[in-house]
Design a protein around this nucleic acid. Structure first.
Lengths: 119, 119
DNA sequence: CGAGTCGTACGATAAACATCGTAGTACGGG
DNA sequence: CCCGTACTACGATGTTTATCGTACGACTCG
């Protein structure tokens, strides 16, 4: 073990601080179908999920890209856990910045999914 | 007056039907600072506004472009009124599709504006 | 009708984006 | 120590986007 207490890994990823999260960035991140789906699954499961948990209709390269967009916009937090990279919604930060927005967006996405996927 | 009741003009603009409005499209439309600002002013005034009402930091060409993106994504409705083109939020349609979303977004945008513009 | 105002269309451009494939790095287990 | 898994980095590509300028069309008012 190193010096720190819970250094699950040495690789650290850059995240925007709470105050740096911009609404425009969040909306842009969620305006892509693949990314919106990721966030919906993340919210549905309620726990951190590895990238490989998701079965997305794109290659792994593209998946990495989408996860990075979500992280850099402040929507998710990514942490290495051994060989896996765990992804968690930044619910606390988002709710503090924009109360109710995330739930509202998730509800809207769910309604649209019902409307289109179950005709 | 012509035959129709309120044919303020002959030029008609294509709008998506309510069912055709996609959440991703709305989010993408609002992820641009200029367009978010337009929507905020539109909501604040509560009435239809002409394009020239807005004092945007872009040229007229670009303004036209942004208004079209908003219209084609289903966020606003545009109607010619003589020489002016009036723009109105499609509140009814948006609220029916995604209840509470528009207000949530407007609140979020307002909070962010306060946080950044009035430090 | 003529001039002015309001907005569009079109073409150009530079930047951003989504996507892929390949090659490579980090980690854990035999 | 080597291998497999998980993810990344980089380069390429085609599409979309934001922006502008100029030229034009529609309407109003004198």
């Amino acid at each position: 073990m190193t010096t720190a207490s819970s250094a699950s890994s040495s690789r650290d990823l850059p995240h925007p601080a709470r105050e740096e999260i911009r609404l425009e960035g969040v909306l842009h991140a969620l305006s892509d179908p693949v990314r919106l789906r990721i966030v919906r699954e993340l919210a549905a499961e309620g726990v951190e999920l590895s990238c490989s948990y998701f079965d997305l209709p794109v290659t792994k390269s593209t998946t990495t890209h989408h996860f990075r967009v979500l992280r850099e916009s402040g929507v998710i937090r990514q942490v290495y856990e051994g060989t896996a990279k765990m992804n968690g919604l930044r619910r606390g930060d988002l709710d503090a910045l924009f109360p109710g927005l995330l739930d509202c967006l998730l509800t809207a996405a769910a309604r649209q999914a019902v409307r289109h996927d179950v005709p």
